[in-house]
Design a binder for these strands. Structure first.
Lengths: 266, 266
DNA sequence: AGATCAGTTCCACTCAATGGAATATGTTGA
DNA sequence: TCAACATATTCCATTGAGTGGAACTGATCT
């Protein structure tokens, strides 16, 4: 933390704390304690954030919570030619064709973030949750599909970083993870082997950048009874087709870049 | 601007500038000029934001753009009992029943922000755009539905603030706006009178808080040929039913609040 | 009604952020 | 290929913006 502008650190510590905290919001005292700031400092910070619309305050209950301006910023975030815009038609086609909920997940460091979701008719529980939801690379079909299609060096790095975090939740060992990655890489898609959420199953395929490295994934979230082995093959094919098209539209000759071949995503 | 923590102001000025700027990102020089900061300061700020994951930097092109962590924060933002979660089933039902794209917009000061969207089969252009999209209260059917169902005092305030902003875009006069508000209030829904986007039409109904004040809106985005007067009535009825149910589930005896009757949204 | 606790305001001090200058890096043109 | 330029990045002495202890206010509990 050598030279980090500490204002920024504090501001986002506060915002993250509000994001973690109770849905209804947090009181000043608890928030200040949680981020380890004196009350007056936290107070001033919160009011600055309120002026920006990033935090809301219910005067009746004295609760602070995240403001809607964050949606406005998030809407513009993401890869340059906007993966989301490119992928949307594909998501809609898949939902229409399969009658399932489709997720678009992007790699973000050691995690994958859901940046779009096209909802099917049946209600789905997923650890991804909704747009903005995060999972460790390797957990769930989409994030597994991404991990399985990273270059080996990066895979190792991700595993080294994520394994300890995974153990905290459940029993994941490196051997199992690597075997699963190999299997997924072989068949070209991740399916719902790990029954992390009872009754729920899914299937994910990677979206590959020009260099053949996974930058994102498409996945289906569904129930176990709808994901039969025969249907899985059909679904995987459809997903692969769309993912391939998205990847192709992502890559070619990015006009914003000097030469073709540049990575689209950091 | 008396005592505002200027760090926060600068940080969000930078983020907003990145949101406005070109999709592909901005160079340090231009960004610094745009937010009127010396280059080194902008540079330090950007790197602090990168450490937080709020900004990404493509080393090849030297372009800075908004990072995916914003999605993570935005996912947790919004009203306490999470209007979005409450409303989602309704959005899905409506999309299924009507085959149209449904928007969920929430009031945010003088604007309305789209916080969810359930996509129908046909491609829709709307000024709202997507989740995170913003429109002035009064523009478009959803934001008009909200405006029309605010208490008179607030309506005046909104009009006073928004009219100048509106004139910049197109010819809106106060008389027209007020007449439209009265009409919408009378029929209980906003329909696509103003053809701001050629070929596109829509219909919005308010979601009312316990005090009868609009806090949000449901709207349909569609094409003019699909929005016939007869169908509008059917659509309005369906929307009203769902909006009523959402409003009801929003209000009663919020357990987070001491007494029933508190406003859910700031 | 008094006590207690959370929220808010105040302001002198200080240390963190600032930004001018210097350096490094990469880009353009000849 | 190499100079000339433009942009990005690092450095560090200066300083004023943010800090936080203390005091005030107002709400809530007993």
């Amino acid at each position: 933390m050598s030279d980090s502008t500490s204002s920024a650190g504090r501001i986002f510590a506060v915002l993250r704390q509000l994001a973690q905290g109770e849905r209804a919001g947090m009181r000043l005292k608890d928030l200040a304690a949680a981020v380890d700031l004196p009350r007056p400092t936290a107070h001033r910070l919160l009011h600055a954030l309120m002026a920006e619309g990033m935090v809301e305050h219910d005067p009746r209950t004295k609760l602070y919570r995240l403001g809607l301006e964050l949606f406005v910023l998030a809407a513009k975030a993401g890869s340059p030619l906007n993966l989301r815009d490119i992928a949307r038609p594909g998501l809609l086609r898949l939902t229409a064709a399969l009658g399932e909920t489709i997720f678009l997940m992007v790699r973000n460091g050691f995690d994958a973030v859901c940046i779009d979701r096209s909802a099917g008719p049946l209600p789905i529980r997923s650890f991804t949750g909704d747009v903005g939801g995060t999972v460790m690379l390797g957990i769930g079909q989409a994030a597994m599909a991404i991990l399985a299609f990273l270059p080996p060096g990066e895979q190792d790095e991700v595993i080294r970083y994520n394994l300890p975090r995974m153990r905290a939740l459940s029993a994941f060992d490196e051997g199992f993870l690597r075997a699963e990655m190999a299997r997924v890489r072989g068949q070209g898609y991740a399916d719902g082997a790990a029954g992390l959420i009872p009754g729920m199953a899914g299937l994910g395929v990677p979206i590959l950048g020009r260099d053949g490295e996974a930058v994102a994934a498409l996945s289906v979230g569904s129930t176990t009874d709808r994901m039969t082995p025969e249907r899985n093959v059909v679904i995987a094919d459809l997903l692969k087709r769309e993912a391939g098209e998205i990847g192709a539209r992502l890559n070619p000759f990015d006009p914003a870049l000097r030469r073709p071949g540049a990575a689209i995503l950091g």
